[in-house]
């Protein structure tokens, strides 16, 4: 190659790379814009296979724990760069909900397994500490198999709220020993109660945020089980709400039926529970009466997002259900 050609080509290459980076689109709205990296996770499907990726939490050290219903490794542990650090669990065929709770310095996980019809509390390395069983004496259930828990939320006092999202849509309130204190919600108030989270944004009045997924709504309940208010989010089949700072993040599995339509996206609410950004969906807009215009997918970066994990810098990790066995994607926040 002649020197002049080389220079010319190198210049072209440089310009091309620059143009490429410049062209990578930012996805989202307002102050919540992201660049999506589908190749964040370095796991090898041969050694650490996933079927559906369900939910993710951080531990104290910033490691990421994830549930998958692949019984070769129901729990995968990643570092922030997507490298697999640990893998355990072969006995959780319906490994779904995953919550983290720091119990006076001892870190605990709560795995909601809808196929085992129970919630299992474990250490970070998988030793079983306790199980939370179906509320047999509540009169709401005839048999154990009707109870198909999908999610847990842990109150500061160690009480556990379990959402029976694939069963009868009740929220079951246990004490930390696993004794049932209350059963509320249910099929009249919730349609597919897929997620539950503790809403601590008003520290004086902690409440529960529950997804009524098939209704495209979030419903707020008091810790005693009284319905407080409803947030209508048409087009958003909400998996579980994740409260981080003053915002609520959630994965939207689909924006239209059928359930395998591949029409999902990610959504962020502000402190007033208004949509401020809907990455991969239309720009959120409100009617004059305060109702939200329906949300729908615009960018097919995701098929069926199932959970969102938010890191301290505001970057997101998104796990997906029924999406050809993909590992979580990372969404880098654009500052």
């Amino acid at each position: 190659m002649r020197r002049r050609d080389f220079l010319q080509n190198t210049a072209l290459l440089g310009a091309g790379v620059l143009a490429g980076f410049k062209g990578e689109p930012e996805i989202g709205h307002g102050n919540f814009r992201y660049r999506i990296n589908p190749r964040w996770c370095k796991a090898d499907p041969a050694t650490h296979p996933v079927t559906n990726c369900h939910e993710m939490v951080f531990d104290k050290q910033g490691r990421i724990f994830m549930t998958t219903d692949n019984i070769r490794n129901n729990i995968l542990v990643f570092n922030k760069d997507g490298k697999v650090l640990d893998a355990w669990g072969k006995e959780y065929p319906g490994a779904h909900g995953l919550s983290y709770h720091n119990e006076n310095g001892v870190e605990m996980l709560y795995i909601a397994d809808f196929e085992r019809h129970q919630v299992i509390k474990t250490t970070l390395t998988g030793e079983v500490v306790r199980t939370f069983e179906w509320p047999a004496d509540s009169g709401k259930y005839k048999k154990q198999s009707e109870f198909k828990p999908t999610e847990t939320a842990i109150a500061p006092n160690g009480d556990v709220y379990v959402a029976d999202g694939y069963g009868k849509d009740y929220i079951v309130h246990y004490n930390h020993d696993g004794q049932v204190k209350n059963v509320f919600g249910g099929p009249d108030l919730l349609k597919n109660a897929h997620g539950v989270a503790l809403d601590t944004r008003n520290p004086l009045k902690p409440a529960l945020l529950v997804s009524s997924r098939a209704e495209n709504k979030l419903k707020r309940f008091s810790l005693e089980g009284a319905l407080l208010d409803t947030i209508a989010l048409p087009g958003a089949y909400i998996c579980r709400p994740v409260v981080q700072g003053m915002e609520v993040y959630f994965a939207v599995l689909i924006s239209q039926l059928p359930w395998d339509s591949g029409s999902g996206f990610v959504c962020i609410l502000d402190k007033n529970n208004r949509v401020v950004s809907a990455p991969c969906a239309n720009a959120p807009r409100y009617n004059t009466d305060g109702t939200l215009k329906p949300l729908y997918q615009t960018i097919r970066a995701f098929k069926h997002p199932h959970d969102v994990l938010v890191d301290p810098d505001g970057n997101l990790f998104v796990a997906q259900w029924n999406s050809n066995g993909v590992y979580p994607y990372r969404m880098e926040r654009v500052k």
């Binding site: 091309g16 689109p25 999506i36 097919r300």
Partner: peptide, 21 residues
């Protein structure tokens, strides 16, 4: 050929191009 390969590079650097719904 080299010239064309270089022209293709921006597309690679772009990484993922997503499809619209």
């Amino acid at each position: 050929h080299l010239f064309f390969i270089l022209l293709l590079l921006p597309a690679l650097a772009w990484g993922q191009r997503f499809q619209l719904a």
